[in-house]
Every structure is written in C-alpha cells, then in structure tokens.
C-alpha cells in the first residue's frame, strides 16, 4: 500500500512532501475502508434480499439508534483527526524559517520570471540551493496566475495587487516542473518553468556567471538567447508564420501598417518602444496582449534583440 502511494504521488523532493504524503496515505486508507464497507454491503444486500416472485410485506425495521450513533461518531472522529493533522502540516507549510533565501517570483501573461536578491532576473528557470529553505514572494503583473511545483507539494496564487508567500526546502537534486494552475488565458498551458536544485557551491557558481554573463557577448547571439529565454517564442515566430504576435522574419526597415490605420517603419526606436510599451503601436490584425518588459530586460539585452531581428533577413 505504501509503495502505491509513492507511485501515485509525484517524487517527493522537499521537506514537506513526506508529511503531505503521510496524510494522503491515511485519508486514502480510510476512504478505501469506507468504500469497501459500502460497496460490499450493497452487493451483499442486493444478492441476499433479491425479490422473489411474490411481492409480500417486508420487515418494518426503520431505525436502530445504537447503529446510527456508531456510524455518526466514527466518521466524526476520523474527520477531526484529518482536520487537525491537515492543519498542523498546513501551518508548517505556511510559516517559513527566518533565514530562508528570498526570491521574488513574478507571473506574467504566459511566463515566469525569478528575481534573485542580487537583482539578477532569471526568466523561466528557478535555480535553488539544496537543503536550504527558500521563501518565494509571489506576485503577478496582470491576471491571477498560480505557482505549482508538484515535487515540492506547494502551490500559491500570484495576485496582481499583493505578494503571497510560499516556502520550501529542496531535499533532492535535479530539475522539477513548475506549472501555472490558475487559468490565465490563451497560453495558460504553456506557462511552464523548471526548478533546478543544485548543491550550494554549484548554485553560487551558477548565480555569479549567470548574472555577469550577459555583458560582452555578441549581440546577435545574446538576442537569440533572449528570444528563447524570455518566452518571445511563445508569441513571435522567426520563420515568417504569424502566431499570437507578428513574425520577426523580414520585418527590419520594412513599412508595417498598424491597427489604428497608420503605418510605421520597423527600426530601433519602434522595436525598443514595442518592448517597453507594447500597447502604443499594435500591428494591424493582432491583439494588444503583449506584456511590457520594462525592468526585465537590461539595456544590452534590448540591443541584442534588435540585432537579432536585424539578422533575420532572407539574404
């Protein structure tokens, strides 16, 4: 039975997940017990008291106070146990230890970004140290999202007007999926991220070279990396096909008409403005759903994107 629960639940990779699995195991056992009592009882009665041909009067037993008290008391006791145990684990799950590493998690229409204490913004990938409590301050930039890491058994909504908090302490190395579980629009099912758990030294090394690796790289390669990392690929294609957003191929210095009827030449200013204030100029035939990247992309990264778009020319 215990192995069945371990198969049923995703792998347990945080300090809280064994406790959650224990409660699930307990409730599963209780439910199975009651389920068998009712189903076996039902089948037994149906077979034993099958109607013979002649339809005569049946017994008048219509209540049995002792039985009724028993089948009210036992479930009540079991329910109280479930509640108390569930609430105690919920409290452990809610209160983060004092010294935990604070990471800001921001949900935006269809991608996650993780801001580390040293200011480095990692889009789409949350790298955390092993066996260290991590407190995530979750918020959203537009609609309600919800951060769910099945392996850590934690879930918390990302609200646009408030921080909400969820904490975990990873106990197993590896990469685990992170889902968005509050419906948030067209690409709700593509709003995924990965949680990578590294030993503390490797985590520090990753953080140093990640936050410094961005400057000095060749702009076009940097732009290409940002195209994938910042989830531009969920809406903009590079092969000319129109998706949620217009394609980036062959648009450099071409004239494109806008939804308000005017037209504009695609140059550095237009691309920079569309990255920081996307609602200003919306291409004709497209919806204005692009989120603003203000504060998410540094200066050199924006230039990288511009250089990358410039490079997408069919020579």
């Amino acid at each position: 039975m215990k192995t069945f629960i371990d198969w049923l639940m995703p792998e347990s990779a945080s300090t809280i997940s064994p406790q959650v699995d224990a409660i699930t195991y307990f409730i599963f056992a209780v439910s199975l017990l009651f389920f068998f009592i009712i189903v076996v009882g039902m089948i037994h009665f149906v077979i034993k008291y099958r109607r013979q041909e002649k339809l005569e009067k049946t017994s008048g037993v219509d209540h049995n106070t002792a039985l009724e008290i028993v089948w009210t008391a036992i479930p009540t006791v079991l329910l109280v146990v479930m509640f108390v145990w569930g609430f105690r684990v919920y409290l452990d799950m809610s209160i983060a230890p004092k010294d935990s590493l604070e990471i800001k998690v921001t949900g935006q229409k269809w991608f996650w970004t993780f801001t580390y204490p040293n200011g480095y913004v990692s889009p789409g990938e949350l790298v955390v140290p092993l066996n260290q409590p991590v407190k995530t301050l979750i918020s959203s930039k537009d609609v309600i999202h919800s951060m769910f890491v099945p392996a850590f058994r934690i879930k918390m909504d990302a609200l646009p007007n408030r921080y909400t908090v969820a904490w975990f302490e990873a106990t197993k190395e590896g990469t685990f999926p992170l889902y968005c579980t509050e419906y948030c629009g067209t690409s709700h099912s593509k709003m995924l991220a990965t949680v990578k758990v590294l030993p503390y030294d490797q985590y520090l090394k990753w953080l140093d070279d990640a936050s410094s690796s961005m400057d000095g790289a060749d702009p076009v390669a940097l732009g290409e990396k940002i195209y994938a990392r910042n989830a531009c690929n969920t809406c903009h294609s590079i092969d000319g096909s129109s998706m949620i957003g217009p394609s980036w191929r062959n648009i450099w210095s071409s004239s494109q008409n806008l939804s308000d009827g005017s037209s504009v030449v695609v140059d550095e200013n237009y691309i920079r403005e569309s990255i920081l204030y996307p609602q200003k100029k919306i291409r004709a035939g497209y919806q204005g759903v692009m989120p603003s990247y203000q504060g998410l992309l540094k200066e050199n990264e924006i230039e990288g994107v511009i250089a990358y778009i410039k490079s997408l020319e069919d020579k």
Binding site: L137, R162, Y163
Partner: peptide, 11 residues
C-alpha cells in the same frame, strides 16, 4: 497575520 508583507498591497 503570518506575513505582514502578505497583508500590504503592492501599490
């Protein structure tokens, strides 16, 4: 009540 940061709106 548990996290004062959770209570205050961001803006």
């Amino acid at each position: 009540k548990i996290y004062e940061i959770e209570g205050q709106p961001i803006e």
